[in-house]
């Protein structure tokens, strides 16, 4: 009878983490930035149907990078979680914190108990009535949660792009300003010294959680509206 090889828990977790990180690094990045009237999401995505940024509830949105089928599954679960909670209690009782916890438990359980971790990284963001009420949670493949302030960049080039956003972002920027910053970050060359790319509106997926809207704050920015905002 053959004996199974002994693998130390440290090695097992490290292998899984490396596997998940590699999967995530293959995808394009998503930039999430706070502005004076809400939170903006931008990513390079030529598809008009397969979204990386979506609405979860009245004031909550979801952004993801990594494997499409895995984060799509989590997105649908989030919509069901939020709608069930809002139906059982009230619409105001659905919070990004609760949803981020549910996602964290799910990601963490899959990471430790299943044969393959989920190759995804998520942002759950909620826009408040005032800028102080905004919440941005970043969830990693292993279920760890971080409460972010101001901006988040995730995906393959997260560190390089994050440096661009960190340098340019300051509190109270307007929507055209943060969009210009996000598009500049997304166009950052992948290699040191490469040419800066200018991304046209058709290559971008942009959405906002707009705190000035009465109920459903989520809105996609496409077509002429997006072009106007990018040129402003």
């Amino acid at each position: 009878m053959s004996m199974p090889f002994y693998v130390s828990p440290e090695q097992l977790m490290k292998d899984r983490a490396d596997y998940a990180r590699k999967g995530i690094a293959r995808g394009r990045s998503v930039v999430v930035v706070q502005y004076d009237d809400g939170i903006a999401f931008a990513t390079e995505n030529a598809s008009r149907a397969l979204h990386k940024v979506s609405e979860i509830y009245d004031r909550i949105a979801f952004a993801a990078v990594g494997k499409y089928n895995e984060f799509e599954n989590l997105r649908v679960a989030g919509v069901r979680y939020a709608d069930l909670r809002g139906y059982s209690y009230d619409r105001v009782d659905v919070t990004a914190r609760g949803l981020a916890n549910a996602y964290a438990q799910t990601l963490g359980t899959v990471f430790t108990t299943e044969s393959k971790p989920l190759e995804v990284e998520l942002v759950v963001a909620e826009v408040g009535r005032t800028i102080d009420g905004d919440q941005i949670y970043r969830l990693a493949y292993d279920g760890s949660v971080t409460d972010e302030h101001g901006w988040v960049v995730m995906g393959g080039q997260a560190e390089r792009l994050g440096a661009v956003v960190e340098e340019g972002w300051r509190p109270g920027m307007t929507l055209p300003q943060v969009l210009a910053l996000a598009v500049r970050a997304l166009g950052t060359p992948t290699d040191e010294g490469g040419p800066q790319r200018t991304l046209p509106a058709a290559q971008l997926e942009v959405a906002v959680l707009d705190r000035t809207r009465p109920r459903r704050a989520f809105r996609r920015l496409t077509g002429a509206l997006l072009e106007d905002l990018l040129q402003a």
Partner: peptide, 18 residues
């Protein structure tokens, strides 16, 4: 390795991810 009751681990139940 999978727990018998998925709710016990705190993850979203299978109905959510189906």
């Amino acid at each position: 390795m999978t727990p018998a009751d998925p709710a016990a681990s705190g993850r979203l139940p299978h109905a959510f991810t189906t």
